[in-house]
Simulated assay, not measured.
Amino acid sequence: MSVADETSQPPAPLCWCCGNQFEEHDLLRLGSHPEAAVCFNCARFLHRRAVGQEDQRRTTLAGRIRTGITGVREWIIAHNWHRLPLLGSLLQRLDRHLP
């Protein structure tokens, strides 16, 4: 074993969803599968997907509102408004607080 092997640190853990490297404190471990971890952004995305599928199974007023918000979100992304300098940062900040 060389000196470089002894002093090298293990690589940062990867998010199982997006594949990016993160520090351990920036990942969520999945209950009975501690080997699986997702970053906070992917966790938020997965939560939205789960709620969306739940809304499809049973319609409620809240579900219709969330579906409308999702449609607007997809339209904004399709038109790349989220990449505009000022408007994009405002939209991304607002998005963190929407269902």
Rank of each mutant, 00 (worst) to 15 (best):
V3L: 13
P13G: 06
N80M: 10
R93C: 08
R64V: 11
F40K: 15
W81F: 12
L46T: 04
R64F: 06
A50E: 10
W75A: 15
P10M: 05
W16A: 15
S8M: 13
F40Q: 11
V38R: 04
F45N: 12
G63N: 01
G52I: 00
S2D: 06
H47W: 08
E54Q: 11
N80H: 14
C42W: 03
D95W: 09
R73F: 07
R83K: 11
R96K: 14
A62D: 14
L90W: 07
D55T: 04
L84Y: 06
T59P: 02
A12H: 12
R93V: 09
R96N: 09
C17E: 15
L87T: 06
E6P: 00
L98S: 02
Q21N: 07
R58V: 13
Q53C: 09
P11V: 05
P11E: 09
G52R: 02
G71C: 05
T67D: 14
I76M: 02
V51P: 00
R57P: 04
H97S: 08
I77N: 10
I69G: 01
L94W: 07
A36H: 11
L98W: 01
H33C: 12
E23A: 09
R49E: 13
D26E: 15
D95S: 08
Q9N: 12
T70P: 01
E54R: 12
C15K: 03
R73P: 01
H25C: 05
T67Y: 10
T7K: 13
D55S: 05
G71L: 03
A43Y: 07
L46D: 04
L98N: 00
Q92A: 08
D95F: 08
E24I: 05
F45D: 15
P85F: 01
V38N: 00
A37D: 02
F45E: 14
C17Q: 15
F40D: 13
R57Y: 09
L27H: 00
E24V: 08
H33T: 11
E35T: 07
T60Q: 01
F40M: 14
C42L: 02
F22R: 06
D95H: 02
G68I: 02
R96D: 09
E23W: 09
S89D: 07
R83V: 06
S2H: 03
C17Y: 14
G88V: 00
H97D: 07
C17F: 14
G52N: 01
G31R: 02
S8P: 02
A12P: 07
L27Q: 00
L90G: 00
W81D: 02
V51W: 01
C17I: 14
R58G: 07
R83P: 02
L94H: 04
